[in-house]
Nucleic acid binder design. Sequence first.
DNA 1: TGACAGATAGACAGACCTGTCTGTTACGGT
DNA 2: ACCGTAACAGACAGGTCTGTCTATCTGTCA
Lengths: 199, 199
Amino acid sequence: MTTPSGPRPGARKRIVDTAFRLFYARGPRGVGVDTIIDEAGVAKASFYKHFPRKDDLVLAYLDEVDRTWLGQLRACARAAGDHPAEQLVGMFDALHSAARREGYHGCAFINSAAEASPGSEVHARSVDHKRLVRAWVTDLARRAGAADPEGLARQLTVLLDGGLSAGVLDADPEVAASARSAAAVLVAAACPPARASTP
Amino acid sequence: MTTPSGPRPGARKRIVDTAFRLFYARGPRGVGVDTIIDEAGVAKASFYKHFPRKDDLVLAYLDEVDRTWLGQLRACARAAGDHPAEQLVGMFDALHSAARREGYHGCAFINSAAEASPGSEVHARSVDHKRLVRAWVTDLARRAGAADPEGLARQLTVLLDGGLSAGVLDADPEVAASARSAAAVLVAAACPPARASTP
DNA sequence: TGACAGATAGACAGACCTGTCTGTTACGGT
DNA sequence: ACCGTAACAGACAGGTCTGTCTATCTGTCA
């Protein structure tokens, strides 16, 4: 289960963990529920009890990715320094970490949205995630003293999306480095007297 | 038909045209060959005569996209001016045109690669396309006098990928504008005495 | 001991998908 | 007039997918 208190150690968590791994590697449509059931070691009835439709599991997967990725962005930002301008550049370190991870396969949201119907919940959830990230970056840009915080946030999130989504092709660490250096240039140009260079 | 000389008026072209439309909208895996056969108005035998495996049609589709997209990038670059630095920024107008097009759905290569097996021909073809684009941008950056042409090209292609691939979520024209403005900043920073501003 | 909640195993229906195969029709060149 | 090529129509096999259903097992609480 999701909280550590409940008397439920297995089943649902095994399903979600397995789905996370398989969905990210092959895309939700590339993984049948039978495969998940086998690898998670649960019964079909248990599966459909927790997730009446397959899409319910896909949404749970996306929520998991949303939590994880935002956490990594925040951690990298914080680790880069106290000044918001430094953090705007530092968050791109999350890209580098992601690219080094085994089985890196690009952006889960863009990959999922690519195979979902435009009006579906899966698609909407992906849009929500991107909006959330951009709102966070906008806030950071505002605190960094950017003349146009929303403009800078858009530039940086486009860059972030590019670095992330290209990972579905190859896990080239150069891409992350380029995105970071580009971010440094953009932040420096947008934040008036800032010393946005990073150690 | 493919060549203007041959005695081939229909069939194959109808298949490719239909595939282009449907594959781009729903992704190759989201479209069955029966659907293509129906909408193209061809017989199943004709389909499999021209494309023995479905993947052969997917590859033809990707080649079509490759040709089209590179053509648009080049056209936008040329239209932006004679100086390579101007062209590096101008190519981002292709993003804006794409976003305004009916049925815009992001990057066909990233979307296709997301659902293809990592070792497949479809995946490899997508990687090739991105490499081709980057080579062209690198050449432009070199002629623009960039201190580090490959570095600038990487920055710009990451930006381009971000602007393009995000289109699978929503066709926001602001994204294209942000990518273009960011490109202008990056080009200006990378090309020594350049006046990289655009009309 | 008995009742119950939650899990397990696995058959099944119905839809869809790829690829094969048979047979028919239309047309262009000789 | 004849023949070969390309296209047409559509049945069929074999597989996969989602989601439903029955039936059995296990542990906990009273």
